[in-house]
Amino acid sequence: MNFASDNIVGASAPVLQAIVQANAGAMAAYGNDAVSQRVRERFNEIFEREISVFFATTGTAANALALSSAVPPYGLCICHREAHVIDDECGAPEFFMHGAKLAGLPGVGAKLRAEDVAAYLTSLPKAPKQMPPKALSISQVSEGGLVYGLNELAALGQVCREHGLSFHMDGARFANALVALGCTPAEMTWKQGIDILSFGATKNGGLMAEAIVVFKPELAEALDYRSKRAGQIISKGRLVAAQFEGYFAEDHWLANARHANRMAKLLSEGLMQVPGVRFAWPTEANEVFPIIPQALDQALKAAGILYHPWTELSLPEAERVGETEVLIRLVASWATREEDVRKLLEIASSGVSRQAAE
Rank of each mutant, 00 (worst) to 15 (best):
N7Y: 14
A34R: 11
A34Q: 11
S36E: 04
Q37F: 04
R42E: 13
I46Y: 14
T60C: 05
L67K: 07
V71Y: 06
P72V: 08
Y74F: 09
C77S: 08
C79F: 12
A83P: 03
D87M: 04
M97A: 04
A100Y: 01
D116C: 05
V117E: 02
A118W: 10
Q130L: 07
Q130W: 11
P132S: 05
Y148L: 12
G149R: 13
G157F: 11
Q158A: 15
M169A: 02
A172I: 13
P185F: 12
G193M: 14
K203H: 12
E210F: 03
E210A: 00
I212E: 05
K216F: 01
E221G: 01
Y225V: 08
S235R: 13
K236F: 02
A242N: 03
F244P: 02
D251Y: 13
D251H: 10
L266H: 15
V277S: 09
V277R: 10
F279H: 09
W281I: 11
F289W: 14
P293R: 01
A303N: 03
S333F: 10
A335E: 15
T336A: 14
R337M: 00
E338D: 09
V341P: 08
K343T: 11
K343C: 10
L344H: 09
S349T: 13
S350P: 05
